[in-house]
């Protein structure tokens, strides 16, 4: 159908609305009687004037009732101009969305797309309108930072993380990104603690951990990849550890490092994460030494790993060899590889 099909009628809509309600725009929000009358009237052929067919009795529309559609008369020129404007804007929007989508695509994805010859032209076009790869990086970093801020705003130190019954435990996979470390490090394992109020550097062996009370909890372990597992952990409360080895005044962060971490080829690839001390003091934050009632196996970070159930799995560093309390925010292994910084769950 086309707008030309509609015979232009008396343009009484503006001049005398009360005389010809058929062309009067009716505000949909007013459930008065005239609204019900208009729909049949609008359908009348233009030639026939007064003798209306049997109209339904005017009645009140309920608040959820559909409002009848009411035609309005618009100047043809104005309508055409508006329509042209809207279609031009729409076309511009489609072009902008297409170029924006291209700009956001990772280069890895682009390399798999056909018509490689046109890729440079598209990149140049995008850069010319300001969509440079630097801006892309900034935008995506900003998106991660914003999401981190949301996570921090949601975080409450007083909130208890959901716990499960031991019967609900599910298998926990060894997700070491590289090779699982050689167990040879275990007999000589030491934990070095620095940034202490005492100004000293402490070194603990496995036997030194025995003086701390052991706490157990069954919590869900959630990986950034999307899998999760319910596991039964046991270990030292980080809060107790902080009380025994108080950090220097002004310290806000606990930077943890595992010197025994390996890459996929078995070469040393030290792993490092950090959590803020408030999160470290949460009663469910453990320096875990047990899994499933047994000492931690190598693949889960023997002899001691971090367990922060309010953070993604990648913050739960295995086989910690070093803890340093710092005032300045420390680096994070996966944040440097394009992932979020705080990883709050």
């Amino acid at each position: 159908m086309d707008m030309h099909d509609d015979t232009p009628r008396e343009d009484a809509a503006d001049a005398a609305p009360e005389a010809t309600p058929a062309v009067t725009p009716e505000p949909a929000a007013v459930p008065e009687a005239p609204a019900a009358e208009q729909a049949p009237a609008a359908a009348e052929p233009p030639a026939q004037p007064a003798p209306a067919p049997a109209r339904p009795a005017p009645r009140k529309l309920s608040p959820i009732e559909e409002r009848p559609e009411v035609a309005i008369a618009l100047p043809r020129r104005k309508l055409a101009a508006q329509t042209r404007r809207d279609f031009l804007l729409y076309g511009a929007g489609v072009a902008a969305a297409a170029l924006g989508a291209w700009w956001l695509l990772p280069s890895r994805t682009k390399s798999h797309l056909p018509l490689q010859a046109g890729h440079d032209a598209l990149d140049t076009l995008a850069a010319r309108v300001g969509l440079t790869s630097e801006r892309r990086g900034k935008l995506l970093d900003g998106s991660l930072t914003f999401d981190d801020d949301v996570a921090e705003a949601l975080y409450s130190k007083d909130r208890t993380i959901r716990t499960y019954a031991r019967s609900e435990v599910t298998p926990l996979r060894n997700n070491y990104d590289g090779q699982t470390p050689d167990p040879a490090y275990l007999p000589t394992w030491q934990l070095q603690i620095s940034g202490l109020a005492s100004g000293r550097i402490e070194r603990l062996g496995v036997n030194d951990l025995a003086r701390f009370a052991t706490h157990e909890q069954v919590t869900r372990f959630v990986c950034v990849e999307g899998w999760s597992a319910v596991a039964w952990w046991g270990g030292i409360r980080f809060a107790d550890f902080l009380a025994a080895f108080p950090p220097a005044p002004g310290a806000k962060w606990a930077a943890m490092r595992s010197a025994v971490n390996r890459d996929a080829h078995g070469h040393p690839d030290p792993y490092y994460v950090s959590i803020d001390l408030e999160t470290a003091r949460h009663p469910q934050t453990l320096l875990a030494t047990q899994l499933g009632g047994q000492p931690l196996p190598i693949e889960h970070g023997a002899p001691m790993r971090l367990l922060v159930p309010m953070k993604l799995g990648l913050k739960n560093i295995k086989a910690i060899t070093e803890i340093a309390y710092t005032a300045k925010e420390p680096a994070d292994y996966w944040n440097e590889r394009g992932y979020s910084k705080y990883d709050g769950l």
Binding site: M3, P8, D11, A13, D14, P25, A73, L74, P75, R77
Partner: peptide, 15 residues
């Protein structure tokens, strides 16, 4: 709606 020019120059449409 503002004032319309001539009656033949208007189109009836449903918003």
């Amino acid at each position: 709606m503002s004032r319309a020019p001539q009656s033949t120059d208007t189109v009836r449409v449903v918003p």
